[in-house]
Amino acid sequence: MNAPVNSLDTVTVTILPPVARFNLRIAPADLSVASKAFGLTLPTKIGKGAQNADRAAYCIGPDEWLLHAAEADQQAIAAAFDKVRAKTPHSLVVISDREKTIGITGPAAAELLSVACPLDLSRIPIGGAKRTVFDYAQVVLIRDSEDAFRLEVWRSFVPHVQGLLQIATRELAIGL
């Protein structure tokens, strides 16, 4: 039996440490309120991201944002949104435990993802994110640099996705 392969020279796959993660739904007209509560100007175009220190926001739908922050800030962020909810209706749902994040880095990162992600990865801007699928799993794909990606995968789908990435990493190593 082959041992799990998580990295070869050209790509590394790792499970990243947890973050505070939120799903934000708000009318685009009210976005400035959310930006203020989160402390970061939220992007307005689907697929775009914004980042400042450990806060990040990705627009993944017409009225939907994925927010990332340091774990320790989870309660404070929830409280900040709580304060403005009465005047500015929105939905902020903690999903820190719903997903795990898989980091994929290295020159072959995009090639590895192309094994099961149908998107044209060359069109994802650096700092942007897309909701897509990886094989049978719904995922959010974040691009951090030319050859660094993160996959946000629902917890119970992680073994399937991770296993497939291992199989494909071995395949890349063989080079056929």
């Binding site: 739904r25 999903i95 820190s96 435990d97």
Partner: peptide, 12 residues
């Protein structure tokens, strides 16, 4: 309707 739906099956 001003209402939003979010799956939390795997959050809990």
């Amino acid at each position: 309707l001003k209402v939003w739906l979010t799956s939390t099956t795997e959050e809990w």
